[in-house]
């Protein structure tokens, strides 16, 4: 178990960095080259109209499925973070229950084109208009704004990998059984990030990244608020056709 005793040797930190970068690359759902190549493949007027004509429950279900696919890649990422599988299953679930959506939102900035404010969805790039029938305009604007702000940091894939792991390994989550262990994991990840930023001569990024955490938390609670609003109007839909993993995480 790499966390007993608690090495802080540089070799350990560099090995930890490499392992997290590899985990991110192996579980990133869309390759960066693929996204870059498709960035100008936009939805046509007719395709946009088709999305906007979906009923609210159809669009909610469709987006819940897409979100759940993204979350599954984040679960695989978590499993590959050294020490994560050494945690008790309840703590692994506690970290993922809130952290998975946050990592999805961080990763979304890889799929975002700031030049025309579009996001990669269903194989093409679309604006917030694409999601009009969800009835969650404020949430979508907030999510797109967040993507813009993360893109503005121009993170490398390695930096995004480290930041994603820090978002996930959060010792402040309520109901953790072994908070100390999560804290020790988190400390080594923080050392990794500052080591990496020093190497990249971008130490100012550290503070900007930590500032993103509170925005992430507000986006996640806004999502849960919207889900609550939707499931009151369509309780059967959520119960019968929403992905089971989505329900486990968010209801």
């Amino acid at each position: 178990d790499p966390y007993c005793p608690y090495p802080t040797s540089l070799l350990h930190i560099e090995e930890l960095c490499d392992s997290i970068v590899r985990s991110h690359r192996d579980t990133s759902q869309f390759r960066l080259e693929e996204l870059q190549a498709l960035r100008w493949k936009l939805f046509s007027r007719e395709e946009l109209h088709a999305y906007q004509s979906k009923s609210v429950d159809e669009m909610w279900q469709h987006c819940a499925v897409r979100l759940t696919e993204a979350v599954q890649y984040v679960v695989e990422f978590a499993k590959r973070i050294p020490g994560f599988r050494g945690l008790g299953q309840n703590d692994q679930i506690t970290l993922l229950k809130t952290g998975s959506m946050e990592v999805v939102l961080v990763r979304m900035s890889r799929c975002f084109n700031t030049e025309n404010s579009t996001v990669f969805f269903d194989g093409k790039f679309g604006s917030t208009e694409l999601f009009k029938s969800l009835g969650c305009g404020d949430l979508m604007v907030a999510v797109f704004d967040f993507a813009h702000s993360v893109c503005a940091l121009r993170l490398t894939e390695q930096q995004m990998a480290l930041f994603s792991s820090l978002v996930l390994i959060n010792p402040d989550r309520p109901c953790l059984e072994d908070r100390g262990r999560v804290h020790r994991m988190r400390r080594d990840l923080e050392v990794c990030l500052s080591h990496m930023l020093r190497r990249d001569n971008q130490e100012s990024l550290q503070h900007k990244l930590y500032q993103k955490v509170s925005v992430l938390q507000s986006l996640c609670s806004l999502h849960v608020e919207k889900l609550h609003w939707f499931s009151q109007r369509y309780p059967l839909i959520v119960h019968s056709v929403f992905p089971p993993l989505y329900k486990e995480l968010f209801t």
């Binding site: 679960v75 499993k79 590959r80 599988r85 993993l245 486990e248 995480l249």
Partner: peptide, 14 residues
């Protein structure tokens, strides 16, 4: 309670 998540976590990271 988290049946699916338990199963995903138990699967090997092949």
């Amino acid at each position: 309670k988290h049946k699916i998540l338990h199963r995903l976590l138990q699967n090997s990271t092949s």
